[in-house]
Amino acid sequence: MLSYALRRLITTIPTLFVIITVAFFMMRLAPGGPFDSDRALPPEIEKNIMAAYDLDKPLVEQYFLYLGRILTADFGPSLKIRDFSVGELILSGAPASMQLGLSAIVLALVIGVSLGTLAALRQNTGADFSIMTVSMIGIAVPNFVMAPFLSLVFGIYLNLLPTSGWGGGALQYKIMPIIALALPQIAYVARLTRGSMVEVLHSNYVRTARAKGLREQLVVVRHALKGAIMPVVSYLGPATAAVMTGSVVIESIFGVPGIGTYFVNAALNRDYPLVMGVVIIYAVLIMLLNLLVDLLYAVLDPKVRYV
């Protein structure tokens, strides 16, 4: 399994290279440049700035310059927040995003799997129906509605939590962002769990376990859940990567110092180095998590073997 993991890690390098190349040129296709704004710059000034950031060179040359810099782990300067390098911005933002994201995923896993299992055990009853309806709401309400709504209710009407802000990372500032991030994930996980749980509960090995006279609780937890969790695990790979890299909506509404805002704002600002930086982070994260998921598969399912 170790050699399999190693091999997989090595194949990520060419993939990453392709991603960098695709992202680099795609980004440059977009019209408008980093220094176009309502204060249009005189041409000579724009020329100075472009030169200061090597943006006046031919695109292919810029590409190779960038590759060279990446190899030395230099992500370049941010064109918008000019006091920070892209590396600094990502390092300062990633912990907050990842922390919130991981908490949200763990929350989603615990609540989602429990609700999904419950719904499956009580299939086609009122409990099943209400769990699935509530979880549908989690999916159907866009986060740009949910986040301000939570903030309004808990921050202002009930005055229980700060409306937004970070407060140096104090717990009360993190509660609402985590909930807002977790809600749709809870819903997805619950639905996935219910689906596969229903299937597993009808399978032979669960029937066998029941026939052996094991307690229902034990059957569910020990046998059924292990099989039913598979689709959830494969869903979790990409979902964790997406949630851990932050959400522009949640972070801008709750004032979280994360990197989620950069995915959208850097693209809209044409902050090329920052866009590249977050694209690379995302790609690396998703590849690592997918690898982790595949390894988890091997652990959970004895039929899967990697050599």
Binding site: V22, L29, A242, V248, V264, L268, V279, Y282, A283, I286
Partner: peptide, 22 residues
Amino acid sequence: MRIVDVMYSLPFMFFVIMLMVV
């Protein structure tokens, strides 16, 4: 499938925004 993997690893939002912008 490797091509699909590569596209999977691009942040979806970045992809969409670039397409929208263009």
